[in-house]
Simulated assay, not measured.
Amino acid sequence: MKILYHHRTRSKDGQYVHIEEMIDALRDQGHEVIIAAPPSAEKESFGADAGMVGRLKRHLPKFIYELMELAYTVVAYRRLRKAVEEHRPDCLYERYNLFLPAGIWIKRRYGLPMLLEVNAPIFEERARYDGISLKRLARWSQAYTWRNADYVLPVTEVLGDIVASYGVEPGRIVAIPNGINMKRFDDSAAAHSAKSALGLGGRLVLGFTGFIRDWHGLDKIIDMIAQDPPGTRRHLLIVGDGPARTALERQASRLNVTDRITITGIVPREEVARYVAAFDIALQPAVVPYASPLKLFEYLALGKAIVAPRQPNIMEILTDNKNALLFDPDHRDSLSKAIGRLCADANLRRTIGENARRTIAEKRLTWHANAERTAQLFKNLLGHA
């Protein structure tokens, strides 16, 4: 098939991992993928933000920025129309964004079967965390796009319920979680050698990867480590960077545990696996209720003993006492108790880690499998066997 892939993502971060891996997986399966996207995304290094767009969002009044987003739809429409007329694709795959009905307009004009990948309810997310000025227009934009795609592909069933609340028929909602590219993790070092390479030999490593935000709850882990007796082996390794880093470093200094906390800063994507390989316990201290965290699949692929919150979106992938220990996010001591239980029992860490690794194959949690599911949906729409 010839697939037109449309997105508006300019930042080179976790969002771009999903985009790049899906495109590569589709191409590996013999499909031709034509990309219609902002050109700047291809030029950035991993970890880069949205550049000029990000600065405009921070400094412009919200209603002006939102009108600019909507005006960009004209640019996106022209880019898509040019791609359609030049390449004559069989179908359209779009990564959903707010104030972006261009894909729907192209679908209608050219009769293209369309799949819409949804990673978050962006109207609700932005209204809660950033604020939205043009609320009625933003909500209309989200509803219009979701209702008019042929299939909507949320990353969790929880998110699928939110999509359904906008009037999308359940039969047109297909939950496809994030995945993993096992080729990037096949040659990962054993834990002891990975620790030695990072100067953490002999430590019991509690690890976290990703963009560091206040709500991730890593301050609780530092408080926990600060209560350990002298000579303890527990060490927190944070692989990433973000706005909460400075506060965490100050907290570690105040509690005199700076030598037991390592924050790497941004790590090139191809290097992440060798850091995660050093983890004894992989942490997902908090997550929004509809997300499919990329880090979770990395932890699973490397066979790590995972600690994560007991909430519906996480339980779509993890089972308590099988491939993870799940804690009650509403109970103050539940996280530290789950971590303490794993720290005290090497056999339990090993068993949960082995089950975690098997989960990838059992649930087909790979980008390759996701590309197969996507291609089959297109074939159904096109009337192929």
Results as ranks from 00 to 15, higher is better:
residue 264 T to P: 04
residue 326 L to D: 12
residue 372 E to I: 13
residue 83 A to Y: 11
residue 371 A to D: 04
residue 4 L to H: 00
residue 265 G to P: 07
residue 291 A to Q: 10
residue 382 L to I: 02
residue 182 M to G: 10
residue 65 Y to F: 15
residue 61 P to H: 09
residue 366 T to K: 02
residue 64 I to C: 10
residue 56 L to P: 03
residue 111 G to L: 02
residue 232 T to R: 08
residue 93 Y to Q: 10
residue 33 V to Q: 03
residue 175 A to F: 04
residue 34 I to V: 14
residue 65 Y to M: 11
residue 377 L to Y: 04
residue 104 I to A: 05
residue 269 R to G: 14
residue 201 G to E: 14
residue 52 M to H: 08
residue 315 M to F: 07
residue 169 E to S: 11
residue 336 S to D: 15
residue 253 S to N: 13
residue 273 A to N: 10
residue 149 A to M: 03
residue 69 E to W: 09
residue 384 H to E: 15
residue 166 Y to P: 07
residue 384 H to K: 14
residue 54 G to L: 05
residue 185 F to I: 13
residue 214 D to T: 12
residue 139 R to F: 05
residue 1 M to D: 00
residue 241 D to H: 15
residue 117 E to T: 04
residue 106 I to G: 04
residue 314 I to F: 06
residue 111 G to S: 02
residue 329 P to G: 12
residue 19 I to W: 02
residue 103 G to T: 03
residue 177 P to M: 10
residue 237 L to F: 08
residue 257 V to L: 07
residue 372 E to G: 14
residue 339 I to K: 09
residue 57 K to C: 10
residue 115 L to T: 01
residue 97 N to W: 12
residue 351 T to F: 08
residue 363 K to A: 04
residue 63 F to K: 12
residue 331 H to I: 14
residue 228 D to T: 06
residue 95 R to F: 06
residue 78 R to Q: 12
residue 161 D to C: 08
residue 167 G to Q: 07
residue 313 N to Y: 07
residue 34 I to F: 11
residue 22 M to H: 11
residue 296 L to Y: 01
residue 105 W to Y: 07
residue 368 H to A: 11
residue 130 D to V: 12
residue 196 S to W: 09
residue 218 L to D: 04
residue 269 R to C: 08
residue 362 E to M: 06
residue 60 L to S: 08
residue 245 R to Q: 13
residue 270 E to P: 09
residue 176 I to S: 00
residue 208 F to L: 04
residue 307 V to E: 07
residue 28 D to R: 15
residue 287 V to L: 03
residue 87 H to V: 15
residue 132 I to Y: 01
residue 242 G to I: 12
residue 54 G to T: 07
residue 40 S to T: 08
residue 358 R to M: 09
residue 123 F to T: 01
residue 164 A to S: 09
residue 149 A to N: 03
residue 16 Y to H: 14
residue 193 S to M: 09
residue 176 I to A: 00
residue 14 G to I: 00
residue 225 I to A: 05
residue 331 H to D: 15
residue 329 P to S: 11
residue 239 V to F: 10
residue 105 W to P: 04
residue 73 T to N: 14
residue 213 R to N: 12
residue 368 H to Y: 12
residue 355 N to T: 05
residue 317 I to C: 06
residue 200 L to A: 03
residue 176 I to H: 00
residue 134 L to T: 00
residue 307 V to C: 06
residue 137 L to I: 08
